[in-house]
Nucleic acid binder design. Structure first.
Length: 527
DNA sequence: CGACTCTGCCCC
DNA sequence: GTTCAGT
DNA sequence: ACTGAACGGGCAGAGTCG
């Protein structure tokens, strides 16, 4: 298949607002792919490259050669070119990658270049991703949508599912059961501002789990083979030897566990997320020589340098010794979990009848330095990949009145509007403002329109990207916490900042101070 | 060597 | 990660 | 209810440069 035809489909999908019409366009393109091109081509239609990492990002896509006048690329040729680019490594690789990338783009027409940029950057923005492509696969292969969805969530790989559906139909899809050793999409939680509202969504009685601020882990065990996967289904087994050891010590032969890995201090209180993250992101250590014994080396180096040792805590069990549990009610899965795992490895959990007990559980979790709670419906099955009302998370929320220092022009559907706010706290010693981070969240279209006019009126420097303003507009900002920052001048930054409302009743001189922010920082876990 | 930029279906 | 808009 | 798109801070690792 010509790559140009995929580019045309992508453009048409992007120009279509209706979901059904998008699916129709994608299905038609899927049908015209050669069987050998399905893995790459189906991914392109969902905005994904077959190669997970290419070493190419926004910076490499800034200066591109002029487009070709005539199309010459096929889907297979693009896939081969990306393969070659992704394989480049070592000294001289940046120049080599740049050369190969330039050659690919010089062969592409303007429309094809647009699709390539979207694929390499990971931001195709055609209004269709893997979820919609599942619909298109069902349509093209004439199989039930539910079968495609289920296969996608259990296989975690769009391309394999597309190949199976288009070549083997419903029978091939049925073969995608839960498989020990192969990650499935983890179940997600909705968010609620209070435990009362969470309880209203789940119903009562409910179960309240402590929410740990660490790394989501899905651990598979088959005999002595143990694998640890992240929320995005990446294999991080080599980075978490503590987790492997803990699961190896369990009596069960086959397990699929869902939980969280987190670093603790000497007193057993949780470390700030940054410290857990630092340990979990470490692959090797300087002292690691061959790489054969990477995992023990990671652990030894962590202990030697005083880095956090991560501890796993589990809250669900999806498979036990030959039996799949995902379709069972939560209370049955959790009973099986309690029987399979040492109590010290279980997430803190309380069964509650109503708001009073749930509120007490939430207060206790926060008091212990934890991130919050997840309220769960004990009758619900494990809905892989879904963010339904069966699980609802609740976290404490801080708010501060900050001052807007600058605003960035938006892109995509926010093009032409001032969008991303630079936020500052007042420094009472200097009268200046200390930048703490940015946010673009919590802004309705109406508010975007209002603030564009407002900040152009306050502008002191109108750049193409950033508009600097007189520090006069106060805005109420909600956020989850304060973290240590090497980027911002105050040494602190807000986590998950979002706009609550503009405060036209307050002047900048009445805005909250950097001291107030530092006080919150000092009060965080092990701060 | 250290300082820097860029990347990551990164983690949250 | 959170939030808003569109279907 | 679900999907997609707006974009946040911080981390380690790889490669480049002076």
């Amino acid at each position: 298949m010509r790559f140009l035809d995929l580019a045309a489909t992508s453009a048409a999908v992007g120009a279509t607002s209706g979901r059904r019409a998008k699916v129709e366009l994608l299905a038609a393109a899927l049908r015209s792919l050669d069987p050998a091109e399905v893995p790459a081509g189906a991914g392109y239609l969902a905005g994904e490259l077959r190669q997970r990492q290419t070493g190419v990002g926004w910076a490499s896509l800034r200066d591109l050669p002029p487009p070709a006048a005539e199309p010459a690329l096929t889907v297979a040729a693009v896939d081969a070119a990306v393969d070659e680019i992704a394989a480049v490594r070592g000294p001289g690789s940046q120049a080599r990658r740049r050369e190969l990338l330039g050659r690919l783009f010089a062969t592409a027409t303007a429309d094809e270049q647009r699709l390539l940029v979207g694929l390499f950057s990971g931001e195709l923005r055609q209004g269709a991703q893997a979820g919609l492509l599942a619909d298109a696969v069902a349509r093209a292969a004439e199989v039930p949508l539910a079968a495609v969805r289920r296969a996608l969530l259990l296989a975690g790989d769009l391309r394999e599912v597309a190949v199976a559906a288009l070549s083997g139909g419903a029978a091939a899809l049925a073969a995608f059961g839960l498989q020990v050793g192969r990650p499935l999409a983890p179940m997600l939680a909705q968010s609620a501002p209070t435990v009362d509202e969470a309880l209203a969504a789940t119903g009562t009685p409910a179960v309240v789990d402590v929410k740990l601020d660490g790394i989501r882990i899905q651990v598979h065990r088959s005999g002595q083979d143990i694998a640890v996967f992240t929320r995005s289904l990446d294999d991080i087994t080599g980075r978490l030897p503590e987790v492997v050891a803990a699961v190896r010590a369990l009596p069960a032969r086959e397990l699929v566990l869902d939980g969280e890995a987190i670093g603790l201090d000497a007193a057993g209180r949780p470390l700030p997320f940054q410290e857990t993250s630092s340990r979990a992101a470490r692959r090797t250590t300087p002292s690691t020589t061959g790489g054969t014994a990477v995992a023990p080396a990671v652990l030894a180096a962590a202990e030697r340098t005083g880095q956090a040792v991560l501890t796993p805590y589990f809250f669900d069990l999806l498979h036990l010794d030959g039996t799949d549990l995902i379709d069972l009610p939560g209370r049955e899965r959790w009973a099986a979990l309690a029987g399979a795992v040492d109590p010290s490895l279980l997430v803190g959990r309380m069964e509650v009848d109503g708001p009073e007990q749930a509120g007490a559980a939430f207060a206790a979790a926060v008091d212990a330095g934890q991130e919050g709670v997840v309220v769960k419906d004990p009758d619900a099955p494990y809905d892989a990949g879904r963010r339904g009302s069966a699980w609802v998370k609740v976290k404490p929320r801080h708010t501060l009145d900050l001052v807007v220092l600058a605003v960035e022009w938006g892109s995509g559907r926010r093009q032409g509007w001032l969008s991303n706010l630079h936020l500052g706290a007042r420094d009472p010693r200097t009268g200046e403002f200390v930048m703490l981070g940015k946010t673009f969240k919590g802004l309705s279209d109406e508010l975007l329109r209002w603030q564009t006019e407002r900040f152009l009126g306050l502008a002191v420097e109108k750049g193409d990207w950033v508009v600097r303003v007189r520090p006069e507009q106060v805005v109420e900002i909600a956020f989850d916490g304060v973290q240590t920052s090497s980027r911002y001048p105050g040494g602190v930054a807000l986590r998950f900042a979002r706009v609550v409302r503009y405060r036209d009743d307050k002047s900048a001189a009445e805005a909250d101070t950097i001291d107030a922010v530092r006080a919150i920082h000092a009060g965080r876990p092990t701060g």
